[in-house]
Computed example of a mutant assay.
Amino acid sequence: MLSSLKLPDRASIIELVRYGVIGVLTNSIGYAIYLLITYAGGTPKITMSILYAIGATIGFISNRKWTFSHEGNLLSAGARYVFAHTLGYCLNLSILIILVDHLGYPHQWVQVFSIFAVAGFLFLMFKFFVFPKTLIDQHSQA
């Protein structure tokens, strides 16, 4: 059973590292801003929502070009990206609602957890759905 496991190829590892670099930069800056705004009285969910949209926009440009070297159709990739981030946003919001509102955990720590959970989910969505090197883009370019 273990012998049938396939290790990631070199290109996938490079993509993951690049995704991580972009993620660490954008999320550390975004999280610092999140803490400042919530400390100043901003509500956690509204603050996260605004910063999520800003981070997603920056992420599209950098991940499309640098992480995944995507040359497919910009509009179809953009539509898939919005869909992926809509799911990611719902995941982030659900985590905040459940862990903060219902279970009473501190929002600062829950948001740290959410960043990593959503990042893992989005990497897989970006690699296989948003910026694929498969037939999705070949069909959308026609």
Rank of each mutant, 00 (worst) to 15 (best):
M1T: 07
S4G: 03
L5R: 03
K6G: 08
K6V: 10
K6N: 10
L7I: 06
L7H: 08
L7C: 01
P8I: 01
P8Q: 00
D9W: 05
D9C: 08
S12M: 07
S12V: 04
S12A: 09
I13C: 07
I13Q: 09
I14E: 10
E15Q: 14
Y19Q: 03
G20Q: 08
V21M: 15
V21W: 10
L25D: 12
T26H: 03
I29H: 01
I29L: 15
G30H: 02
G30W: 03
A32G: 08
I33W: 01
I33V: 15
Y34N: 08
L35E: 02
L35Q: 05
L35P: 00
L36Q: 07
Y39G: 01
Y39V: 03
Y39C: 02
A40E: 06
A40W: 06
A40Q: 11
G42S: 10
G42I: 03
T43L: 14
P44W: 14
P44L: 11
T47C: 02
Y52T: 03
A53N: 04
I54R: 14
G55Q: 11
G55F: 07
A56D: 04
T57P: 00
T57D: 06
I58A: 12
I58T: 14
I61E: 02
S62G: 05
N63R: 04
R64N: 05
K65S: 06
W66M: 10
T67Y: 13
T67S: 15
T67Q: 11
S69P: 00
L74T: 14
A77C: 09
A77Q: 04
G78M: 05
A79C: 09
R80A: 14
V82G: 05
V82I: 15
F83G: 08
F83V: 11
F83P: 05
A84P: 05
H85E: 09
H85S: 05
H85K: 08
T86R: 07
T86Q: 03
T86D: 00
Y89N: 09
Y89W: 15
L91G: 04
L91W: 05
N92C: 13
N92A: 15
L93T: 09
L93V: 09
S94E: 08
I95V: 14
I95Y: 09
I95C: 08
I98E: 09
L99G: 00
L99I: 02
V100Y: 06
V100F: 06
H102N: 13
L103T: 07
Y105F: 12
H107D: 12
V110E: 01
V110S: 00
V110M: 01
V110Y: 01
S114D: 06
I115S: 01
I115N: 00
F116W: 13
F116P: 13
A117E: 00
A119W: 04
A119H: 05
G120F: 09
L122G: 03
F123P: 04
L124N: 12
L124A: 12
K127I: 02
F128Y: 13
V130H: 07
F131M: 03
F131K: 01
P132H: 07
P132S: 14
K133H: 14
T134Y: 02
L135V: 13
I136T: 12
I136M: 12
Q138L: 12
Q138P: 00
H139R: 14
H139K: 15
H139E: 06
Q141N: 12
